[in-house]
Structure formats: structure tokens, C-alpha cells
Amino acid sequence: MLVGFKLNGRKVELDVEPRTTLADSLRGDLGLTGTHIGCEHGVCGMCTVLVNGTTARSCLLFTCQLEGAEVVTIEGMGREDNLHPLQQAFHDHYALQCGFCTPAFVLSAYELLSTHPSLEGVDLPAEMSGIICRCTGYSSILAAIKDFAEAHPEGPPPPANLS
């Protein structure tokens, strides 16, 4: 069936089988391989994207459900030559090892910092527990997020690479 939605600021139209997940559409049909697929049943968090401004597991959404929605993936957050400040914070803190979980951590942290810019009253490890780092590199990831919160009391700027 045909479905139309906005992806990183650009209108896309896809012809999909109803059972196609957003994660598969992003990677297979649209060539955006920054969204990773781990468990495919919502547990590991690798496929996290923003849908209408809030995080969602793209393996638990069917593409056909997205009519009229706005989706932002890691490709929309920034480019190699123009990183989003939050990506820069991850870079500065070496907040990645193999990098498999990094896109999901950036998007999940982006949502948390948007609603709680100062992280006041936030149990950070608990709030970030929805994304698994298989290398267990959590401390530098959490340090990057904390540091970003201190440097940006106004919250994160919008995604930097929307067309």
C-alpha cells in the first residue's frame, strides 16, 4: 500500500507491504543505514528514531501506519562535516566503542534533554536504560549527556541536517 510521510524534512512516498517495519523501510527502501537493527522486538533500542518529535522503536512500527507523520533519523541530526552539538559531545567524550548503539543513544538523549534540559531530578542511567550498549561503554555516554546538559541549559537545538 502507498504511504506518505516526512523523513528528515523531506517528503517521501513508499509502496510497502503492511508487515514492513519502519526500520526495514529506512534501511532497505530508503538507504538510510544509520538506523540499526538488533533484536527486532523492541528490547535493545538500536532502531530508535524520532516520530512526531518523540522517540520510538522503528522495529515496532509498521511503515504503513506513518501516513502524515514526521520521522527524524540519525542522518537528520547532523552530517560528518556539520555534527549536531549532541553528536559533538559524544565525539568529545569518546562516547562510543563499536558505534552500533550510538545513533539510538544520540536520539534518545536528544529527547530526554529536550524535555529535561537541566537533567534536574532525572535518574540518568534509568532514563537511558532503554538503549543497550553491547560494549558496556555507558560511563562515557552518560558523561557526554551530562556535559551537554551543563553546556546547553536551554536544551538541544533542533536536528541540524533536515532538508
Partner: peptide, 12 residues
């Protein structure tokens, strides 16, 4: 509510 899955799941 905070015990239900994770934030990303409770969003939907």
C-alpha cells in the same frame, strides 16, 4: 508508569 518498559516504549 516509570516501571513500564522504557521511555521509548511508553511514548507509543
Amino acid at each position: 508508569l516509570p516501571f513500564i518498559g522504557h521511555r521509548e516504549l511508553r511514548n507509543r
